[in-house]
Amino acid sequence: MENGNLAPNETMQVHEMLNLKTVCMTTSKMMEGVVFDQELKGLLEKDVQQSITAIKDLQNLLEKAPKLR
Score class of each variant (00 low, 15 high):
21 K>C: 01
22 T>H: 01
22 T>E: 01
23 V>D: 02
23 V>E: 02
23 V>Y: 07
24 C>Q: 04
26 T>R: 07
26 T>K: 09
26 T>N: 08
27 T>E: 02
27 T>V: 09
27 T>S: 04
28 S>H: 09
29 K>G: 01
29 K>V: 00
30 M>L: 06
31 M>H: 08
32 E>P: 08
32 E>D: 04
32 E>L: 03
33 G>T: 03
34 V>F: 08
34 V>S: 06
34 V>T: 14
34 V>Q: 08
35 V>I: 07
35 V>E: 00
35 V>Q: 01
35 V>C: 01
36 F>Q: 07
37 D>Y: 13
37 D>C: 13
37 D>W: 12
37 D>R: 10
38 Q>T: 15
38 Q>R: 14
38 Q>L: 12
39 E>V: 15
39 E>S: 14
39 E>T: 15
39 E>W: 12
39 E>C: 12
41 K>G: 06
41 K>W: 15
42 G>E: 08
42 G>F: 13
42 G>I: 09
42 G>K: 12
44 L>F: 15
44 L>P: 15
45 E>F: 13
46 K>T: 11
46 K>E: 08
46 K>W: 13
46 K>I: 05
47 D>S: 10
47 D>F: 10
47 D>Y: 11
47 D>V: 02
48 V>H: 09
48 V>I: 08
48 V>E: 03
49 Q>M: 05
50 Q>S: 10
50 Q>K: 12
50 Q>Y: 13
51 S>R: 03
51 S>T: 09
51 S>I: 03
53 T>R: 11
53 T>D: 10
54 A>V: 06
54 A>T: 09
54 A>H: 07
55 I>F: 03
55 I>G: 00
56 K>N: 09
56 K>H: 10
56 K>F: 05
57 D>S: 13
57 D>V: 10
57 D>R: 10
57 D>K: 11
57 D>I: 10
58 L>R: 02
58 L>I: 08
58 L>K: 00
59 Q>P: 04
60 N>F: 12
60 N>E: 15
60 N>L: 15
